[in-house]
């Protein structure tokens, strides 16, 4: 198995994959507890529109995906609070709306070789050295911010009503958290693909919630499950020529089923 590391693309995929394996469940913890699990899926579809836009404008696609997703995340939060539109309705509008925009834009990009399958389901072969640097750089920014504002994010996620009453700048913290979510999602697309980002964000967290005894321990377990899924998923997808994102999520699903069985035996 070690001979895989002689391939540069494999080293790049693992480098980016490990960061994604940390990012997705850490963000997922805050989304799941506030019942916002579909947020990651929605922002992934927005990121797809961003990638299409990047191709047309001939700018770096991950940067375009990050910019559009962060903008959409902030807009969703503002619409939810100011216009009092249900969160789930907003997610439905943004998910299907951005998919429609992505479809229109991608139809304009017919002349480009864009590897749509890789975008939708993830592909380790397409991860460039620049992608790795960008994913590691932005990923460190997201994880660092969460480390510094951990207790504030836990505070606003646990109980938004209480947070609002306590006078903390709950609204700003919510917007910052959603912007970080958007970044994490856009960065993860290269590895797990648009359609499966949500799964990697949520499934390891739900599995960890069956076993964790505290929020911090649950987060640690979720990261562990995610790392197991990503590392084994990348190796299996290379060995058997499978779609990377799909393989990673299938492993995560297996871990989730195991977690249910372990909880059932307690």
């Amino acid at each position: 198995m070690l001979e895989l590391f002689q391939f540069d693309f494999m080293v790049r995929a693992l480098g980016a994959g490990l960061m994604v394996a940390f990012l997705a469940p850490v963000i997922g913890m805050f989304l799941v507890v506030r019942r916002y699990s579909l947020m990651a899926d929605t922002l992934a579809h927005v990121a797809l529109a961003g990638i299409a836009m990047g191709i047309i404008l001939q700018v770096y696609t991950i940067a375009a995906a990050v910019a559009l997703s962060v903008g959409a995340a902030v807009l969703i939060e503002i619409l939810r609070v100011r216009w009092k539109i249900f969160g789930e309705s907003l997610l439905a509008i943004f998910l299907s709306g951005s998919l429609a925009i992505a479809a229109v834009l991608l139809s304009v990009t017919k002349g480009f070789q864009i590897g749509l399958f890789g975008l939708l389901f993830g592909s380790i072969a397409t991860v460039s050295q620049t992608d790795v640097y960008v994913i590691l750089g932005f990923g460190t920014l997201v994880l660092g911010t969460i480390f510094l504002l951990y207790k504030e994010f836990l505070f606003v996620s646990l109980d938004q009503e209480f947070a609002q009453v306590s006078g903390r700048k709950a609204r700003i913290l919510n917007i910052v958290l959603m912007a970080l979510t958007a970044m994490a999602v856009a960065l993860s697309i290269r590895i797990v693909g648009v359609l499966l980002v949500g799964a990697l964000t949520v499934i390891p967290v739900i599995a960890a919630m069956q076993l964790g005894r505290s929020f911090l321990q649950t987060m640690g377990l979720a990261v562990l499950f995610s790392l197991l899924s990503v590392i084994s998923g990348i190796f299996l997808s290379y060995s058997y020529d499978l779609a990377t994102g799909g393989t990673i999520v299938v492993v995560a699903l297996a871990i989730f089923i195991l977690s249910l069985l372990v909880k059932g035996k307690r």
Partner: peptide, 22 residues
């Protein structure tokens, strides 16, 4: 209420408004 938080984590969150940011 199905959050994976301990009683201590929940009660500690009530102290957060008294703290400065970071």
């Amino acid at each position: 209420f199905r959050f994976p938080v301990t009683v201590r984590e929940l009660v500690s969150s009530g102290r957060v408004p008294q703290l400065p940011l970071f």
